[in-house]
């Protein structure tokens, strides 16, 4: 029974058996578009010989050198360490504060306006202030990441909790559920769906915060290396590191998406 229903649901989602080849064609088109972009890049790189647009092959060569010298991996490790600390901090604060804001109207009234205002403000402008507090330590960069991430998480979590069907809560209560049970068994799972949208956005912002913070400090991490080669007018190396940053961003985004699917599969 269950497997038949699952199969039916799968076919329905895919839009019937005939639709199976459609995404395949789509990704083939995308691959072609990317390949075309690389070919154009290579051609214009050689033809125009602009200092800021080296051919793709030169960028790949520079990437190879940077990987061989260990400059990429070493700095990638430094970058990811601050990313993990900054994102984890934001996640804890974002989920807790967001849940409180979503559940209790007084909390929302008290801090909602500040959370929204801080979400709107440009993040890097606070970097000099973080620098005043933490100087050159890791915490300056971690603070920049938290500034980028935490407010979107708070707002998404609060929205998620608030929009949970009140009838569900009502029913649970009438069956004698405690506040704790309501929170853990109903609000949390239901809000996971929407909160994950915030987490996906948050990961993207975390990578941006990480790189921008590092470029501001200009000593460490991938952003620091970009700044270094940028000041030497070495466009190949700047682009090579940018490619690494792009891959990091895409991989993290995909990982969160996979986690999202796994944790919220019951909602299909």
């Amino acid at each position: 029974m269950a497997s038949v229903a699952a199969e039916a649901a799968r076919v329905r989602r895919a839009g019937g058996p005939r639709a199976l080849w459609r995404p395949l064609r789509g990704s083939a088109m995308q691959g072609l578009a990317l390949l075309g972009g690389v070919v154009l890049w290579e051609a214009f790189g050689w033809l125009l010989a602009l200092p800021w647009l080296p051919p793709f092959s030169k960028v790949v060569a520079a990437l190879g050198q940077l990987i061989q010298s260990g400059e990429i991996l070493g700095n990638l490790a430094v970058s990811l360490r601050t990313l993990v600390v900054g994102f984890s901090l934001s996640l804890v604060v974002g989920l807790v504060v967001g849940a409180l804001m979503g559940r209790y109207r007084r909390v929302e009234q008290a801090i909602g306006i500040y959370v929204n205002a801080l979400l709107f403000t440009p993040s890097l402008v606070f970097a000099p202030i973080f620098f005043a507090f933490f100087h050159l330590s890791d915490w300056t960069r971690i603070a920049v990441i938290v500034k980028y991430v935490v407010f979107i998480l708070i707002i998404n979590t609060a929205t998620a909790i608030r929009t949970t069907d009140p009838a569900l809560v009502e029913m649970a209560r009438s069956f004698g559920a405690t506040e704790r049970q309501i929170f853990l068994r109903i609000l949390l799972p239901a809000s996971l769906l929407i909160a994950f949208a915030g987490i996906r956005l948050g990961v993207g912002r975390a990578v941006k915060g990480m790189i921008t913070g590092e470029m501001f400090i200009a000593f460490v991490g991938l952003g620091g290396v970009v700044q270094k080669y940028g000041s030497q007018f070495d466009a190949s190396r700047v682009l090579a590191i940018s490619l690494v940053i792009l891959v990091v961003a895409l991989v993290l985004g995909t990982a969160v998406q996979a986690l999202d699917r796994r944790l919220t599969r019951w909602a299909d």
Binding site: G26, M29, Q30, A33, L34, G36, G37, P51, W52, L53, G204, V207, K208, I211, T212, M215, L222, G223, V226, Q227, Y229, G230, S231, F233, A235, V238, L239, I241, S242, I245, L246, A249, L250, G253
Partner: peptide, 24 residues
């Protein structure tokens, strides 16, 4: 279909590392 993969990339990619190229 041409622009979609690039849109994905640009949404994910931080803009800051491109600043040295803009300067050049």
């Amino acid at each position: 279909s041409i622009a979609d993969p690039y849109v994905h990339m640009m949404l994910a990619m931080p803009t800051a590392p491109l600043i040295p190229l803009v300067m050049m």
